[in-house]
């Protein structure tokens, strides 16, 4: 499996096999959601601060909190929990499907053996 040049080594950028490809795809989606939300919210707050009055940030409130406090301090941790839960739901579903696949494979193999 492992060639001397390392061309078939495990790599997150070149996943191998159905299971790993699927897992890496969902990992990329979760990490994209994670990264965009963190940087996006801060750039948004920064642009509001730079381009508009600072007062806008204090007048813009949500749930009683200035918008940047709410987005960063309340929503982001909640969003991380949601991302983690979505990842787990996908992994659980994926694990069940993989198990189904392997069971079908084994049953087919067993039936064939029985026929022979």
């Amino acid at each position: 499996m492992a060639n001397r040049d390392g061309s078939r080594d495990i790599s997150i950028f070149r996943p191998r096999g159905t299971s790993m490809r699927g897992e890496v795809r969902v990992i990329r989606l979760v990490l994209a959601g994670w990264l965009i939300s963190i940087i996006g919210f801060q750039v948004f707050v920064y642009l509001l601060e730079v381009n508009y009055s600072k007062l806008l940030l204090s007048e813009f409130t949500f749930f009683n909190l200035p918008i940047h406090f709410w987005l960063t301090g309340q929503l982001l941790p909640l969003w991380f929990i949601i991302l983690c839960a979505l990842f787990n739901f996908w992994m659980d579903r994926h694990a069940v499907k993989s198990l189904d696949g392997s069971l079908r494979f084994k049953l087919r193999g067993a039936n064939r053996e029985g026929e022979e």
Partner: peptide
């Protein structure tokens, strides 16, 4: 200080998926 809140919770996403 919000960087601490985001850093100390967001790290668990990395931990979980990777």
């Amino acid at each position: 200080a919000m960087a601490f809140v985001v850093g100390w919770t967001g790290g668990y996403v990395l931990l979980l998926v990777l």
